[in-house]
Design a protein around this nucleic acid. Structure first.
Lengths: 212, 212, 212, 212
DNA sequence: AATGAATGAGTCTTCATTCAT
DNA sequence: AATGAATGAAGACTCATTCAT
């Protein structure tokens, strides 16, 4: 296979990737046949093999692009003076929005992550990014005494990412009809409280009943 | 197909299900062929069709049994005097243990839940049970003023189940090497804190540093 | 296989044949599986092989009985003084009625006669009987100068049997809605005329227009 | 499946049909497997499915072509001045010859006409053509007073076609050794006489012996 | 570079037949 | 004699991949 593509070749390859994204999104990973991609791209079946060696390969390309979009969306955009609560809310909203925007492929990746090392790594790549950022924040906030010092940042980060990502997954996969603002508020609040960050609560909750 | 099986037939069917459980657990849903099940059960290939019409059907049976085991394991066994914290810890431990015990099939179900309504429903069945129990508890505790009254119990329950179940999934799917006790302690603690339940914390955490 | 059957065995065998007759009649020769016969007879599948070695064998038995019924129905019942026309009408009516009564199997036999020597012979057995009777009648009538002397009795007999039998076949196979009396009258009249037998016709028909 | 075929594809399809015609003719409808067609056409087994979805479909195509040939052969080619007797003889000869030329498939069609609506319709298509032509002729001749006015043209046409077609079928199916000229003469003569058309007969036949 | 025809290995599925009870 | 479970050969069909144009 010739590795250097002409402009025309580049365009054909691009079309195939776009077609595959659509096809994967609507039919999952297993159902589509090679010819579904070429048909959707308006190409002959033999053409596929000029650019990809297998369904797996084109899927990897599709996922890589989705991952890239997820990464792009995760920049905080907050100044250095932002409070932890602001950061949590901002990160949660960005995650929820990015997940929704890329839901079909993200969910697909979730499902196929069990079938090979390579898929698992791809699925982990985005998660690891969120997890390590979260862990770093937790450490910083623990050092500053802002949150529960007893939590292990690594475990806690994993748990928080689980909460948010799996909530989104179930929400979108199972077609539950949630309101985005309520979702973001609830997840942010629980996130903050789970790590012992001070959150505005009615004075009478919990603590007041068990006066020191 | 004769629906009433003899003892011998019952035993053969049972063997096939057990074999399929093993095969699914180690090879996933898509890789196994019908003959893999019959070979593992020491039966001729045609025998499969006496008891099942397709791979999907035997998988459903395998999952139903796994779900049943998950349900069985979820009884709390705690007396009426147990505190919320005790209940959370107990439930978390039971869930983590049940998940570990049935990990291969639970994870598989996670992965195939996208390929058909029926699989999705089966995957939801266990989740729904946990979610509704959780939601009921949250309502009760809110009524008694023990936890944050601002949280919507339905969203919060979904978030908590997400946190626990997806933590387990990632832990076991990605072969992270966690310690069960730390997992249970961390998840229980975060669960409790996330809902505003009073948790033993060092007196200086959070609240004291950010005085109103 | 034990050849001498007990009374019970005899009954089972009989049930299988009856069931097979029904099944063949409604589903043709190729569609039915061995288990269809046993199921229809209320017997276990293995039982079939105690009495028959194959579907072909039970079919032969079914056809033999049908053939026997066709043979029984073909006796004329007319006295020695009957006229040729009376004999033709009687024979035609008996044939048509017998064919109708045994239509499903007769038609089936028609269809399977191409698949083996044995089936062909069975199909020919009834036809041969009718043909040789017809041929004999034609010869007799030719000797008596009652009919066209130029016709070869063998060919003519074949043609007449073809006319009647195939008319019945198409009638019943294609679900044309004919009236039995009209069928019998038309076939009898044409039969008689075809062999030059004097038939009552309006004086002006044919002959009168082309006076010698 | 791409519906527009290239020249190469067209040729392959054509080869398969020709091969199938041969295979069906010599082995009947049920015996041949898909691979028999492809092997006979020098093609790989998968190739079959590029052009046909099933054995039934290729059989239908084979029969359609045979029917087309039967239709083509049925043009009389006689001028407007031809006598009814000439027309009957001509039509009979053409039918007998066409039947012989396409005997294997015609006989096969006869046999499979019982297994599906579609086959039955195809089998009826040729028959219907002959029957309606015959019926039309009979009506015309009745109007002109040339033949028996008591016969119902529809029943009579059916009977005549039965006589000719089933004679041919038995002749060729059962491998009787008939002489084509005798067959045509006999059938034509009987056809004519059956409808009361004046036929050259020895003056002493029938009528004279049984004086009113 | 693109096409679409051809290939054939890999599976599923049926069902006549045998076997153990 | 009867049962129904088990067997496995036979054949259909799919589809990734190669090939000729």
């Amino acid at each position: 296979m010739n590795r250097t593509l002409t402009t025309r070749g580049e365009r054909t390859r691009e079309r195939l990737i776009e077609a595959a994204t659509t096809v994967f999104a609507s039919s999952g990973y297993f159902e589509p046949k090679i010819t579904d991609f070429t048909a959707a791209a308006g190409q002959a079946n033999g053409t596929f093999y000029r650019y990809f060696v297998s369904k797996e390969e084109i899927f990897l390309e599709v996922v890589r692009r989705t991952n890239a979009r997820m990464h792009e969306s995760s920049g905080t955009g907050l100044g250095p003076g932002a409070t932890p609560m602001e950061r949590i809310e901002n990160a949660t909203r960005l995650y929820v929005q990015a997940y929704r925007a890329n839901a079909p492929i993200m969910m697909l990746l979730e499902q196929v992550s069990g079938i090979s090392e390579e898929f698992r790594d791809l699925r982990l790549s985005t998660r690891r990014m969120y997890r390590s950022r979260t862990e770093a924040s937790l450490r910083r906030w623990q050092e500053r005494g802002l949150i529960d010092s007893q939590l292990r940042p690594d475990y806690a980060a994993e748990a928080l990412i689980s909460m948010v990502s799996n909530f989104c997954y179930m929400w979108l996969a199972m077609e539950d009809d949630h309101d985005e603002d309520v979702v973001v508020d609830t997840l942010s609040r629980m996130w903050a409280m789970a790590i012992g960050l001070r959150v505005d609560t009615p004075a009478d909750v919990g603590r007041s009943r068990t006066p020191g």
